[in-house]
Every structure is written in structure tokens, then in C-alpha cells.
């Protein structure tokens, strides 16, 4: 459409640049803080230009952590987070895709009941039933374990719905052709349905990886052994003690590193991320 309104164009870009700046500013402040030495925070206001201690601060946090704050080296916590996010993402996808397959491609007694039981998990976010769930995990002896960290977060109604929606759009004839071609249910699942779901799996993986990475309350309750601390909960401990004694530069270095993996995933897999986000919420 031909429309020449230079003033409006200018305003549009102005709004966008302001928006981008507002979105970026808190992280910029944190980044600047992470590049200064101890002395920079004594003056009463924090600097707004980068300092010279970046490498020093980051390598210190990565390799040693802050023993005074009870936080192990960052690489330990990052590894735990990565491990937890991966188990949650892969686990959620695996159990949802098989249950969606059962619900769409089979007819069996209690099918609708099973569907509703899965649906219920959607209504019960972990924050809401935190105490009884904690008790169950404690009774099962799963405190301070990867199983305890991940299993209660792994059931996923949204992923099941997404795969169900997707399976319903796969043409009927594909499955019929496969049956005529001699494929049984497991062969059809492995040879046809799984490869067809590739994009959906990838998109979902991006969303679920982020979901797993940003978990806070659950790891906070389940882990008392610092070997199982995840980065996101470890950071809270760092920040609390950073306020007591001025260790802002270390805390913010940890914040930057904690943000990086999921943010990079969003930036570099933006297309899959958007697809995953928009489709899981339908």
C-alpha cells in the first residue's frame, strides 16, 4: 500500500528503539556491574560504563563460586541446570508423544478418562500444590536427586495436547497406506509418525528446555545438598549475600551466565521458539 508518512515512520522507530532500550536496560546494568572490581560499589552509585575486571570476575565465579554465600562453582550449577532442563524437555516430549499416540490412534476402555486425567495436570501448577507434592517426593526418598528435581515437573498436558492436535491433522490415508505396506503400530510410530513430528518436537523442545531451566521454587525445596543446586536457585543465594557484603560484581557475573543459555536458545532458534510458543498455547 502506498502510504508516505515520514513523521509516523519516525515515531514508529522511536517507539521501537525506546522499547528495545527498556527491555535491554536491566541486563545492561547487570552486565556493567559484572565488569567492575569491588571498589566500584562503595561510592554509593553504580557505574554505567564497563570496567576492566570482566574476565577476572567471570572466571572466578565459573571455577570457584562464592564459598561465603554457600554457592558452589558456577560450572557445577550450570551443569545441574542443563541436566535438569534436558531431562525435563526430553522426558516431557517422550511421555506426551506416546500418550497422544495412544489417545489418537487407538480406541480402548477408559480412553476418555485417561485424557481427562492428563488434562487435570494442566490445572494444577506446581506452585499451587507445593506442600503435598514436596511430601510425596520426600516420602519417596527423592530429595537431593535428579529424579526428585525432574519427575514431578515432567507430566505435561500442553505437550500432549499439541501432539494430539498435530496427529489429528496427519491425513488418515498415511496410516492406512502404512498398514497396507505392512507396518504395525510401533513400526508406523517409528518410521512415519516420529519423522513427521520433527518440527513440532524441535519447537516444543525449545519451549520446554527454557521451562526446565528457569525452574526456581521446586529446586529450592528439593535440594539441600549444594551438589544439586541449579544455577537459577544458586543465584538467589548469591544475590542475598551480595547485598550484605558488597559482592555485586560476582553476583551479576553469575546472573549474566545464568541467563545466557536459554536466551541464546531463543535468539538462535527464534523460528522454532515462536512456533512452539504460539502452538502450545492454543
Amino acid at each position: 500500500m502506498v502510504e508516505n508518512r515520514p513523521l509516523l515512520d519516525f515515531l514508529t522507530h522511536l517507539v521501537l528503539i525506546t522499547g528495545v532500550a527498556i527491555v535491554a536496560f536491566p541486563v545492561y546494568v547487570a552486565f556493567i556491574a559484572s565488569t567492575h572490581g569491588t571498589g566500584a560499589f562503595v561510592s554509593g552509585v553504580m557505574p554505567l560504563l564497563p570496567g576492566t575486571h570482566m574476565v577476572e570476575n567471570y572466571s572466578m565465579m565459573w571455577n570457584e563460586g562464592l564459598t561465603s554465600a554457600g554457592a558452589p562453582p558456577l560450572w557445577v550449577m550450570m551443569f545441574n541446570s542443563l541436566w535438569m532442563a534436558l531431562i525435563i524437555a526430553v522426558g516431557k516430549i517422550a511421555i506426551s508423544i506416546t500418550s497422544a499416540y495412544a489417545i489418537v490412534y487407538f480406541r480402548f476402555p477408559f480412553r476418555v478418562l485417561a485424557f481427562w486425567m492428563i488434562f487435570i495436570t494442566l490445572m494444577l501448577p506446581v506452585e499451587v500444590r507445593i506442600l503435598p507434592t514436596f511430601k510425596v517426593v520426600a516420602d519417596l526418598g527423592m530429595l537431593n536427586s535428579y529424579a526428585g528435581l525432574t519427575l514431578p515437573l515432567i507430566a505435561s498436558a500442553t505437550a500432549t495436547f499439541l501432539f494430539r492436535q498435530f496427529f489429528l491433522t496427519v491425513p488418515e490415508e498415511i496410516m492406512e497406506a502404512a498398514r497396507v505396506d505392512g507396518a504395525g503400530p510401533l513400526k508406523f510410530f517409528r518410521d512415519i509418525l516420529l519423522p513427521l513430528s520433527r518440527t513440532n518436537i524441535a519447537a516444543l523442545f525449545v519451549i520446554l528446555f527454557i521451562y526446565g531451566w528457569v525452574q526456581y521454587l521446586w529446586p529450592l525445596l528439593i535440594t539441600t545438598d549444594s551438589n544439586f543446586y541449579t544455577i537459577v536457585m544458586g543465584i538467589k543465594r548469591l544475590a542475598a549475600s551480595a547485598d550484605a557484603e558488597p559482592l555485586w560484581h560476582y553476583a551479576m557475573a553469575a546472573v549474566m551466565m545464568a541467563m545466557l543459555p536459554p536466551v541464546l536458545v531463543v535468539i538462535f532458534m527464534q523460528r522454532l521458539f515462536v512456533k512452539g510458543l504460539v502452538e502450545t498455547e492454543k
Binding site: P171, E176, V180, L196
Partner: peptide
């Protein structure tokens, strides 16, 4: 008998080719 055991082959309206 299962379709696979009937020794028949079928051609579908929307072709039903495996897209991948």
C-alpha cells in the same frame, strides 16, 4: 486378516505418500 496380509495394494485419493 490385517490389510498387510491380504496381498492387496491401494492407491489413495490424496496419494498418501510418506512426506519425509
Amino acid at each position: 486378516k490385517e490389510p498387510a496380509d491380504r496381498d492387496i495394494a491401494m492407491v489413495f485419493q490424496n496419494y498418501a505418500l510418506y512426506p519425509h
